[in-house]
Write a protein that binds this DNA or RNA. Sequence first.
RNA 1: GGCGGCGUAGCUCAGUUGGUUAGAGCAUCGGAAUCAUAAUCCGAGUGUCCGGGGUUCAAGUCCCUGCGCCGCUACCA
Length: 670
Amino acid sequence: MDKIIVTSALPYANGPLHIGHIAGAYLPADIYVRFQKLLGADIIFVSGTDEHGAPISIKAESEGITPKEIVDRYHKNISESFKGLEIDFDNFSGTARPEHHEISQRFFLNLLKRGFVSKKEGKQWYDPKHNRFLADRYVEGICPFCGSPGARGDQCDSCGKLIDSLNLIEPRSKISGEIPILKETAHWYLELPKFTDELKNWLSTKKNWKDNVINFIMGWLKDGLKERAITRDIDWGVPVPLKEAEGKVLYVWFDAPIGYISSTIEWAKKIGDPERWKKYWLDPKTRLIHFLGKDNIPFHTIIWPAMLMEQELDYVLPDDVPANEYLNLEGQKMSTSRNWTVWVEDFLKNFSGEYLRYYLAANAPESKDSDFYWKEFQNQINNDLANVLGNLANRVFLFAKKYFDGRIDKESDFSDQTAEIIQRIGNDIIPITEAYQTYQVRKAIGLIIDIARFGNKYFDETKPWVTVKTDVIKAKETLYNCMNLLRIISITLFPVIPGSMRRLRKMMNLNVEFSLKDISVTEDYFQIGETEPLFSKVEDNLIENEIVKLKSASIDQSGLEHKAEISYDDFSKMEFRVVKILKADKIPKSGKLLKLTVDLGGEIRTVVAGIAKSYSPESMIGKQVAMLINLQPRNVMGIESQAMILAAHHGESLSVLVPDNEVPAGSEIS
RNA sequence: GGCGGCGUAGCUCAGUUGGUUAGAGCAUCGGAAUCAUAAUCCGAGUGUCCGGGGUUCAAGUCCCUGCGCCGCUACCA
């Protein structure tokens, strides 16, 4: 039997998990793995926390603790969320572990030795106060071409020219404001262009990949692959294994996917068979399947395969990369910074993890973005699970207990209907298994709940509460068939809500160890044991609380970042005036810019404003707005902008400031 | 602006390689039933399949175009 490795993108260990993570990468993988295990597949499911990188070290610094402490905190936190959701990895590791460092270094060295990594030397600005090298955009100074101040190290906004940060006049660190030191440094680059043909050939064999994945990759290949730096000058990460590279680490995106392998190695050791990982990773027939969100596609379909291609061991390449789209929340994009999200740990305080599994699986962003609506969550749980499935179980069990002591035998004189039902359900199994195998969990769930719906209909139509008094065999037949449906559901829905399906089987005294093949087993009798309602309903007030909580938490922007205090002098240097907009035009080839012609009381100026996403040109004409007048002119898209419009921004949307009453054009603002 | 995606019933969506009267769930309305967590079952719908044009015997499906929304990206904030 072919082996399968399933991975979920490594969660970054600088914060807890939210429902978007679960819907995109973890739940679909867990369901797939559980289904494959029911099929008897030889499959392992690995992941781990991604524990390196600047955000973690910066967070640690700001809390006055070590990066390791941050990582340990969130590794634990994330693991607990997974546990609460029954997402069962065979191994869940972390990239700060020695095993991972070792193999990541080997990956680097192999690529270097084979000529796919090259070193590039150069000087780079270094912030002496923070002891770190500064990326170009973190250095500011006077533009060497046009002499304007405030030019970034990569490009001057004033004249638009690309500049070399080393030529900046009077450079300053944007992090500390200190004068940076010029230091010699070197970086290593992964030469992706060299992989172009090999990647194209390999990708051309991938006929069954999702369209969204293929489109994404083709875009990259069309633009041409670019070499990418794989080292960084920070102190938290996998050290670059070269003497000359002291103080440098591998870039996180380079070492993170290697975590899939190191996690498997860790797993092999844990089960006391340290070489076992090779049987998966080095067997060309192994199907390597990466579950992830769409933002991760290029790493897993271009960079990661390239890395695997040139190793001393023949690693298997990804067989499939079922990328999911995004989960929105109440119609809006999720955002952790605005706190517009639902954290898994919070969810689990009030609701069963099975409910989240069910709802997210039934509304998974499989082929396009989908939405999490609290109200819809409640509806779907109460209808599908409590009313349709839960009620079917409950009515059947209670009825059987009331009249038959819970024991229902399969009688030889059941009608033809019994055979028909078995036939019908048998036909349903094929599309259900196909759906699971092609990652169409929404479809699988729909088909399974339909079985429960059919059960209720059948129960109603055969009226066992009547036949039990007139024709006992008929009543038994109804119950037997309904129980059989429940038995089949307990298997087919198991990958989605394993805990509830296990409870269902216990109530029916069915074996808790089972496989997909058991679907076709014919039970001679059912003996119902102790029962309880399978699902409790989600009450209105809980949902209302969540909606209120979400809305208030997102408004509470306690973490405002303030700028440094300024003097009145500083303020008085700025000349703000109300201007009247005479003319407004779209700037060709620009998505966000409008060219405004404004009157500031006799003087006419041209202003380029980045407001086109929020305002049409027509809507601006005649408007009075606030502007900063004495800002140094800037050349934007070939037009000199001679003032700056003031606008409030909330997320992506902008709102220009207008005076409360009509005032003469040019009125000063103070 | 470039690339990609999306636009189907009040809501969330499904519609396989173009093929009969365009479907499901939820919500709404009417009815039945009483074994069951007032759960269930039956019935009723409603659609300019975003607009316009084209290819075809036949278009929700393919092509062109317009509009709207989303993502990446550029200019920018």
